[in-house]
Design a protein around this nucleic acid. Sequence first.
DNA 1: TGAATGATTTACT
DNA 2: GTAAATCATTCAA
Length: 199
Amino acid sequence: MSRFEPLPREFYQRSALQLARLCIGQLLVSELHGELLVSRIVEAEAYAGVRDSACHGFGGRRTARNESMFGPPGHAYVFLIYGLHFHLNLVAAKESDPSAVLLRAVEPIVGEAPMRARRRYPKDRRIVTNGPGKLCQAYGIDRSVDGIDLCHPPLYLAQGTRPRHIGRSPRIGIDYAGDWAQKPYRFFDASSSFVSSMR
DNA sequence: TGAATGATTTACT
DNA sequence: GTAAATCATTCAA
């Protein structure tokens, strides 16, 4: 079944900034619900540890919610936002350093039908996975995925292909973060039509 | 114990 | 364009 080889733990052992950039073009593979889902990552943001005022681990504040961020790299950090939507992060760097990469948008490659079904059949296929809450709904990812190891099935990244050009911009929806809100910590595939368009 | 608040999405005017 | 939905978590008292 596994036509895809999980990327090794070493892939995640770098700064969130580097990891976010390297994630663009990689594949997100899931067998969480018995069906194979594969998508190409086209948008991601870096949350860079205790000094980053937009990061949930800011100031070393360790709580039940963000515990996974402080764990070893190569694991998932999933949280609920606005009481409605889940966000999927890849834990980066090293243990006790709360750095992570938020996956914001992907392009379905395998299993688009079940993804569309979970998203209640949107008209435009881009609406299936072009936002952080949307891709989690499409994949059926919830808080039960928080903390799982991403170096083996049922959820992992696999080698993809590098996009021709990677765009950068400030992160979305963190205006409260002062100076850190200006930093270009968002990366995306400039040629993809699945990049989120909010705000 | 209680009030405020989001790393958003969707529907509606 | 604006606003509602909706709740775990956080912080103040």
